[in-house]
């Protein structure tokens, strides 16, 4: 459902007056966007639905803060991203992974990265995805978000700006530093593997 199909401004007015059917309609409109952000930036130990509920409650209880200067979906995605970042911070878990802690598939991926210069084949995609998730857990929530959006979701710097409200320079600097940290973590794993 696009913003044209649902008259968001009218719907927001009715939500402010406490109309529950408009709350339902707006949730339906926002659901794909919210769930996409939740799935990308959810802390490991939190359920998707719990995080989505936190986001919707924040959106509907803080509607008076929405001034209409940006499209409503942009404002919602910022609220969603900030809620996810807070949840990740609250989890306060930044494990330091060692080669021996990795699963079998992840170890094979590390071995492959060291042995060849070719791209990893399709059979190793699940392992590489899990390995990247583990390596990203060692980063700060903001660094994790930038790398995930840039490299895994293929978003542009402008899209990340819209989503987070950060400046373009900040996004680029964060991405640079986060890549450096990730490279360091991967280098450590490569050094730890048995020769």
């Amino acid at each position: 459902m696009t913003e044209d199909e649902l008259n968001v401004a009218e719907c927001l007015d009715r939500v402010r007056k406490g109309d529950e059917s408009s709350v339902r309609a707006l949730m339906q409109h926002l659901h794909p966007l919210v769930m996409k952000i939740v799935r990308s930036h959810r802390p490991r130990r939190m359920e998707e639905e719990d995080l989505a509920q936190m986001i919707y409650t924040k959106v509907f209880t803080r509607l008076e803060q929405y001034e209409g200067k940006v499209p409503f979906t942009h404002w919602v995605s910022r609220v969603a991203v900030n809620t996810c970042l807070s949840a990740i911070k609250a989890e306060a878990s930044r494990p330091e992974w060692r080669f021996a802690d990795l699963g079998e598939e992840e170890q094979v991926v590390v071995e492959n990265l060291a042995a060849t210069t070719d791209d990893l084949d399709a059979a190793h995609q699940a392992g590489s995805s899990e390995l990247v998730t583990k390596l990203m857990e060692t980063l700060s929530p903001e660094d994790r978000l930038v790398l995930q959006a840039l490299h895994l979701e293929g978003r542009s710097v402008a899209e990340i700006q819209e989503m987070t409200g950060w400046s373009g320079a900040l996004v680029k600097v964060r991405a640079f530093r986060a890549r450096h940290k990730l490279r360091k973590a991967l280098k450590k794993l490569l050094a730890e593997r048995s020769p």
Binding site: V109, D119, A122, S129, L152, L186
Partner: peptide, 26 residues
């Protein structure tokens, strides 16, 4: 840097190939 790029490319590909979720209804 090359190793990291290859790892990220493979993870991104895994993400693209993952089954899509149906978020059409709340």
């Amino acid at each position: 840097q090359d190793q990291l790029d290859r790892l990220l490319r493979s993870a991104a590909e895994a993400r693209r190939n993952a089954p899509a979720h149906d978020d059409s209804t709340v």
